[in-house]
């Protein structure tokens, strides 16, 4: 059932393209959260998905990961239907997704252990990844001994250590304070620059979407409401206003979209 069962496809095969066609999502018995969505994520791009809470962006991410079956339509990875979770598509969560009984290093080793990498090699690679996210000194610490920002760095290292073909990020910095958040955004851009993976980055922070994404789509009640290609040369605030308009929000001094209750 796992399309990464052979364990050799990762890393060398490179980024994957993901495609949703006429997809309806939602939990059984409840009203669908997403209806008839068409979306293509090109191989190797960083797609930022913005949208208000409840628009189904997290649900979409879970479906792309293979954790939630579609109710209608189909989702494919390089043309092959996604039927379940796989090491090919790592999911990064908002918080508390590290196994709390494993040290930072042993958390990062997890995808390597699952793939059967020998102990010494996975230890060495986990330490390299921790150094890459600036946590070389925290390898032996338990998650509870790390700050929120450090835990998200470990999560990022863990996701990338498995050399997935796609990284799906569900508001990974949503629980962090503004300053840590900014540092993490820059770290992410830097780390992703040399990772051969397709990235889907879900956020409700418009500035974050513009900073991290090669492309930004705004998810609305009837599918993709707007698409923006972030351009640093564009007049300040113009792209942000465009996204906010698609979100149906008034452009204000606060960059983040206000969460409806």
């Amino acid at each position: 059932m796992s399309d990464a069962a052979n364990g050799t496809v990762t890393g060398t095969a490179g980024a994957v393209s993901l495609r949703a066609e006429g997809v309806t999502l939602g939990h059984d018995g409840a009203a669908p959260v997403v209806t008839g969505l068409d979306l293509t994520v090109r191989a190797g791009e960083v797609l930022a998905v913005a949208g208000p809470s409840g628009c189904g962006k997290s649900t979409l991410l879970r479906a792309l990961a293979g954790l939630l079956p579609v109710r209608a339509g189909r989702i494919t990875a390089d043309g092959a239907p996604i039927t379940g979770p796989s090491a090919d598509r790592a999911l990064v969560f908002q918080d508390d997704a590290l196994l709390p009984w494993r040290t930072a290093r042993r958390n990062v080793e997890l995808p390597l252990a699952i793939r059967g990498v020998p102990r010494a090699r996975r230890r060495e690679r986990a330490e390299r990844w921790l150094a890459r996210v600036g946590l070389a000194d925290a390898a032996g610490r338990l998650p509870r001994e790390l700050s929120g920002g450090m835990r998200q760095r470990v999560q990022l290292a863990r996701a990338l250590a498995g050399e997935p073909r796609a990284v799906l990020m569900d508001e990974p910095f949503g629980a962090l304070d503004a300053q840590t958040r900014r540092a993490m955004q820059h770290l992410l851009v830097e780390v992703l620059a040399d990772a051969p993976a397709t990235v889907v980055f879900v956020t409700h922070d418009v500035d974050e979407a513009l900073l991290v994404g090669d492309r930004v789509v705004v998810l609305g009640p009837s599918g993709v409401a707007a698409e923006v290609l972030p351009d640093p040369a564009a007049p300040a605030g113009a792209q942000r206003a465009e996204i906010l308009a698609a979100l149906g929000a008034r452009p204000g001094p606060r960059p983040a979209v206000k969460e409806p209750v």
Binding site: S2, A4, G7, R62, A65, G66, L67, P85, S86, A87, R89, A90, L91, F93, D96, A97, L98, L99, W101, L110, P111, I114, R115, R158, A159, G162, L168
Partner: peptide
């Protein structure tokens, strides 16, 4: 048990046995 631990292991390529050994029993 928080579902997120199981989801994390499954999206890192872990199957049923992995989830039992690495998430359920320690958790």
């Amino acid at each position: 048990l928080p579902g997120v631990w199981e989801d994390a292991v499954r999206t890192l390529g872990g199957g049923r046995a992995r989830v039992l050994a690495q998430v359920v029993l320690p958790g």
